[in-house]
Write a protein that binds this DNA or RNA. Structure first.
Length: 666
RNA sequence: GCCGGGAUAGCUCAGUCGGCAGAGCGAUUCACUCGUAAUGAAUAGGUCCGGGGUUCGAUUCCCCGUCCCGGCUCCA
């Protein structure tokens, strides 16, 4: 090897000699790794510009455009292009941050007037011009004071520079055709030039606080997305359309499942018969399965005295999430009022709507002396709770102010925690399977203790609880990740996510170990030694919120519920009026098998009836005419797939009953 | 809560530069009695989200409120 040569290694174990001072891009070519769209390089594990000079012995990998890392770099570069376009059009704009995010990017600007949709079009046009200009992204590194000088008129950049610990600050210059540059503070890496952008579009503008802090200025955020090809961009936009079509608020209205009447109030839904039938199936399933697995149902009221919430700690730790109290029993003529609406009256008792069910279950436990022989005690309730969510975060059933949890609290000994938690995880996986997520949880996370100051309980308690959950996960055989510091203030937890039909992740099940509430309520059980011991408590929900899970199912299935959940299993479509009588007999036969069947006796034409029920996503339409009535059969037209003619009614009833009982999908 | 955008028939939406309010679908009625995704006709249906203001006159302009949509975590 000559002095002018350096040696580089490739990701595939290959090796090559390149001239000293060669770039990462040149090294990739020498290694034969520059195949397809390569946007950047990973040099000794760190992503770098293709123009980075590499050192002797460096290990180099290609970062392709269609990798997650490649897309991030692409999106980050497009964010810069957008910022330059905004500078060109609105020279007074101040720049904040412009990172890549899942499926896109954004950039925050401080401008006098908010951007309008028309502004977005102008910005996008300007961006396309910048892409055509093939501007280089040139990296340079400067000392902190020079960087401060360069961005002296950009207060947000100055604040960022002050928060950066490195003494050397990197800046990327976009070199315009006339030789001038547009600089932006940036860690990089970036594309070599703007022309490397294959496809992008701007999407929307929204307000966003500087650094997400509502006490700081509200900036204008422009969202966009960029992809490695026009095809990939189109596919992404199609997916967004698909998500809009599946929106549970839209489907909920179209399929007459539920509504959110304005006069009822924000974040509160009423369930129509069609939605209620589906929900009832979910509730029946939950009740039956909990009973089968040794849980005991309990019921509790919707409100409770302030003293209860003081003892539980909710008024200390969760007051912001609670509805305000009602003051009752003031002793005067008044029947009471919401506190604050009337002044001066004699103090009564405050009652709060419950945001959680745990204190009530604790009261059930504490209603008498408990023996170790009763443990584990698994109390279960479909408990409706009310939480004061800020108006801006409400989102149909996915984020509501009133909803029902499939909630359970398991009281057990320290030794029983692992067994109980393992059972809960098995229960959850079975439930996911039965509701159409057969592949099981897509993400399992153990959340550990947040900073000590933000938590209650002893170090020993935390260590024991975290060890128990770790052992639970090991025994369950599920792959999991650790979310350090993401636990609740009273204990660590395990969270399970599922991924729906269009790739979105939803968190459902959560299992939390709690040694705080038993302490606060002074819970005890009498052990075999005759002495009192403190039980542990496990909080767990499987669906999480029934309402929210319903919305997830609705979107997952795009309204086409599996037969066992569908509001109507089968609708009988008579060809003409003279077949109504036979249609009634078919319905009766199906209903006798506990199937949900109806007769369409409207005077629509047959084609119109079929279209109507197809749009309503009824699993089976049963066509009956002269031939069927004579042979006591039906023509079965399933929601999807081929139709079958001349199916005997009894045979069909048995088939459908089996499909429903097996919770099979069509 | 904050920023931006909205709210017109049950639904989707048009419209009124301030002067009696529109379509399609749906509903109802009548006719049609039909063989696998829309039969035809007629009729009904509106506090133009609520309250206040400006005006001869407000669904339209202004203010306040309610509700809805998007966003407010992802560190240059």
């Amino acid at each position: 090897m000559s002095e002018q040569q350096v040696s580089v290694k490739g990701q595939d174990g290959g090796q090559a000699e390149v001239a000293a001072g060669a770039t990462a891009g040149e090294a990739l070519r020498a290694l034969g790794l520059f195949r397809g769209q390569v946007l950047a390089a990973r040099v000794d594990g760190q992503t770098r510009d293709l123009a980075t000079t590499i050192a002797d012995g460096a290990r180099i990998e290609a970062v392709p455009a269609d990798s997650e890392e490649g897309r991030q770099i692409l999106r980050h570069s497009v964010a810069h292009i957008m910022a330059q376009a905004v500078t060109d059009l609105y020279p007074e704009a101040k720049f904040a941050i412009g990172p890549p995010i899942d499926n896109g990017f954004y950039y925050d600007f401080d401008v006098a007037e908010p951007f309008t949709p028309t502004d977005l079009e102008r910005i996008e046009d300007r961006m396309r011009a910048i892409v055509r200009e093939d501007q280089a992204f040139q990296r340079r590194e400067l000392p902190r004071d020079e960087a401060l000088e360069l961005f002296a008129d950009q207060p947000y950049k100055v604040e960022i520079i002050h928060s950066v610990e490195d003494q050397v600050i990197s800046v990327y210059d976009n070199v315009r055709p006339d030789g001038t540059v547009w600089p932006d503070l940036c860690r990089g890496p970036h594309l070599p030039t703007t022309k490397w952008v294959p496809a992008f579009t701007l999407q929307r503008v929204a307000g966003a606080y500087w650094r997400g802090d509502e006490r700081r200025p509200m900036l204008q955020r422009i969202y966009g997305t960029a992809w490695e090809s026009r095809k990939a961009l189109k596919a992404h936009l199609r997916q967004l359309d698909e998500a809009r079509e599946r929106d549970h608020r839209k489907l909920g209205r179209e399929l007459d499942l539920l509504s959110f009447p304005e006069e009822l109030g924000a974040g509160l839904a009423v369930w129509h018969p069609n939605g209620a039938i589906v929900r009832k199936q979910m509730e029946d399933y939950a009740r039956a399965e909990h009973l089968r697995r040794g849980y005991e149902p309990v019921y509790s009221p919707h409100i409770g005295r302030s003293q209860l919430w003081e003892t539980s700690g909710h008024l200390d730790f969760y007051a912001d999430g609670m509805y305000p109290p009602m003051e009752l029993d003031t002793g005067g003529e008044s029947r009471g009022s919401v506190r604050g609406s009337e002044g001066g009256a004699q103090r009564g008792t405050d009652y709060y709507p419950k945001p959680m069910n745990c204190p009530f279950h604790v009261l059930v436990y504490r209603s008498r002396t408990r023996s170790y022989r009763e443990l584990p005690l698994r109390l279960f309730e479909l408990g409706t709770v009310y939480r004061y969510e800020r108006s801006g975060v409400l989102h149909g059933l996915l984020r509501a102010r009133g909803f029902t949890q499939d909630d359970s609290h398991i009281f057990c000994t320290a030794e029983q925690i692992v067994d109980e938690c393992v059972d809960v995880l098995e229960f959850a996986v079975d439930l996911f399977r039965d509701f159409g997520f057969a592949e099981g949880p897509s993400r399992v996370a153990l959340s550990t203790r947040p900073s000590k100051a933000a938590t209650v309980g002893t170090d020993e308690g935390w260590i024991h609880a975290e060890a128990a959950l770790t052992e639970t996960l090991e025994r369950s055989g599920l792959d999991y990740v650790v979310d350090a510091g993401e636990g609740a203030f009273y204990g660590p937890k395990i969270d399970l996510q599922v991924t729906d039909a269009i790739g979105r992740a939803w968190q459902l099940t959560t299992v939390q170990v709690d040694f705080n509430l038993p302490e606060r309520f002074g819970l005890a059980y009498v052990g075999p030694d005759g002495a009192e011991h403190r039980p542990y408590m496990i909080h767990r929900v499987l669906f999480g919120s029934l309402d929210r899970f319903f919305a997830i199912l609705l979107e997952h299935f795009a309204g086409a519920f599996p037969t066992w959940l569908a509001p109507v299993h089968a609708v009988v479509v008579p060809i003409s009026d003279r077949h109504h009588a036979y249609g009634d007999q078919v319905v009766a036969e199906l209903v006798a098998q506990d199937l949900r069947a109806t007769l369409d006796d409207s005077d629509d034409t047959m084609g119109a009836k079929i279209r109507k029920h197809q749009l309503a996503k009824v699993p089976y339409q049963l066509i009956v005419g002269d031939a069927e009535a004579a042979a006591r059969t039906v023509a079965v037209r399933p929601r999807q797939g081929d139709q079958r003619k001349d199916v005997p009614v009894a045979e069909l009833a048995a088939e459908l009953a089996a499909e429903v009982a097996g919770r099979r999908s069509l």
